[in-house]
Design a protein around this nucleic acid. Sequence first.
DNA 1: GCCAACGTTGGC
DNA 2: GCCAACGTTGGC
Length: 163
Amino acid sequence: MPNHWLFKTEPTTFSFSDLLSAKDRTTFWHGVRNYQARNMLRDDIKNGDGVLFYHSSCTVPAVVGIAEVVREGYPDHSQFDPSSEYYDPDSTEAEPRWFMVDIRATRELERAVTLEEMREAPALKEMKLLKRGMRLSVQPVTAKEWQAILATAAAKPTKAKRK
DNA sequence: GCCAACGTTGGC
DNA sequence: GCCAACGTTGGC
């Protein structure tokens, strides 16, 4: 049974539409420089796992699409590149410090599921993203949360009562 | 190994 | 642009 994750990104840096227009709708998820997130990228995130693609630091923070892991943890090349903003002079190729995975876009959601909606959903009460002070850019998502978000995306956005 | 200072994140 | 929360750094 594949696991589920949430990847955060600022859409001005790399958005879901950027992923959709990438070659093979695939990208390497480089630039993560946090040890907890690194451990997940290196050890826990497996081929076939599902990824919620989340836009942060923008007008309407929201999950906008889903993706699939297509390559498991391998060294993030940007740590060795002095011209990269992610360069880490203390890391070596023999003993890389930072890892990344490749993800491929599965599909855009019917509509974005906003942070606000997620806060209101009882099924998402325990979601890590919603916890105070939660800043990890890679985080685990339970199967229940994954389902709830997909279901919300498929449902009508309005709360208008039906006759 | 403690902890203050500093930098970063990210919603608002 | 503010600020709370957290992670990292470095002096001791």
